[in-house]
Write a protein that binds this DNA or RNA. Structure first.
Lengths: 226, 226
DNA sequence: GATGCCATGTGAAATGGTGCACAAGCGCCT
DNA sequence: AGGCGCTTGTGCACCATTTCACATGGCATC
């Protein structure tokens, strides 16, 4: 009986798998909306752009078993993945930094749809504090701890300039937030108990730039040697 | 003498290394601004948040040798990394989709600073076409090929809703763009010759959600078993 | 000029992830 | 009831990446 509820989530799921779960989930929800009730690993793989064996292995980590000869039950998979990805709990987020990016993020539908409603916005600039953005009044960064406490936020999004990012992160950590998504183009540090992910827009372009440049150089070299 | 210019870029740099180069570059530029002329792998590693041996191996892929007992020359490293990341060539980008996110991206300083000036914006919505956003007149998505040809864009950014993303990507590919950064929350496909990177904001939060949930479950289980 | 210190550069082991290939199992059709 | 075709679940080998550990070699000091 302790068995029934307990050991499901105990074994950790590999990071690479976790990163794919939201992709699977999107594809599955789409299938469900289309009235599809069953899906094979091959189909789900093509929807997610990965290998079919990879899908099967990922599902085995979730203990989301399918039926041999048939496939996986779509709704069941949706349930299992949702459960793994936070148990369907809606985690409100607070956005620090209401510049261009912060405003865009506060209006981004995908957050709400994904179970992460924006509970509040804060900024350090007094000129911005008090203004209403996407239905939220911007509050002072000094109210951050209060805001987090009031709304029960556990996730913080940092959309400040690079120079302010570490301070923003520290404030979030001090306020009790345990997960942080950092959009500022700088390396920030957090205590071990806090989970940090970095999204770096300029970096992504630079990586693309490398491949472009490298293709060009390789092409030239091909012509030279071939 | 053919040796001097040629074979530097021939051996491919591992993807994991390429992904770190922009991070190193940021740290190095900061050091250079502070008047620091020499840096050890240990210091650079702490700036980038990685292991020092990793830094040294990464630099060896670039043939950016340091001096034993001393470290690496900051300006030299900046030059080598910039060279690897596209040779200092400025690649203008075109943004498809001028919604909340597209507008924010078009105003994002980091792109210009990183050598990726926004050369144009396009949208499918006639209500948006013709409006001026961040100094650019929004043009129709039908003009995309012309715009790419005029400006010599090689990079496209997709900031459309999910439903329009594949069409946007196809248009970019048809227009001759060879690198695409997709912000739409959906899996898109491109020909092999085109390089695609996916940035998925909601997915990032869901990954954070997994870890948060998992920590909570592990904590409960700790109390139960310990 | 020799010696000691220090940081690089790299071989090799450990780690983590991917994909193949195949056995096992389920349902359908005869 | 039996056989067949389809799909899951997984052992295994391969590959990329990380990390350790140490030999190598330059610089400064004496």
């Amino acid at each position: 009986m302790a068995d029934a509820a307990g050991p499901r989530q105990d074994e950790p799921i590999p990071d690479a798998t976790v990163a794919r779960l939201p992709i699977y989930l999107r594809g599955l929800v789409e299938l469900s909306d289309d009235g599809v009730s069953t899906v094979s690993s091959v189909v789900l793989a093509s929807l997610a752009g990965v290998n079919a064996a990879n899908v099967r292995k990922d599902m085995s980590y979730l203990h989301a078993h399918g039926t041999r000869g048939v496939g996986y039950e779509v709704d069941h998979l949706i349930g299992e993945i949702s459960l793994a990805l936070g148990g369907g709990v809606r985690s409100p987020v607070v956005i620090v930094g209401v510049g261009n990016l912060g405003r865009a993020l506060s209006r981004y539908d995908g957050f709400v749809a994904g179970g992460f409603p924006v509970a509040g916005l804060v900024d350090a600039d007094p000129a911005v504090v008090g203004r209403k953005v996407a239905g939220n009044i911007v509050r002072s960064v000094e109210d951050l701890a209060d805001l987090v406490a009031e709304t029960g936020c556990t996730v913080g999004i940092v959309a400040t300039p690079a120079a302010a990012a570490q301070v923003a992160v520290d404030s979030l950590v001090a306020s009790g937030v345990s997960s942080i998504l950092n959009f500022a183009p700088t390396v920030v540090t957090v205590p071990d108990r806090v989970d940090l992910r970095q999204v770096d827009l300029a970096t992504e372009l630079q990586i693309l730039g490398y491949h472009q440049h490298h293709r060009a150089v390789a092409g030239r070299s091909d012509r030279a040697t071939g």
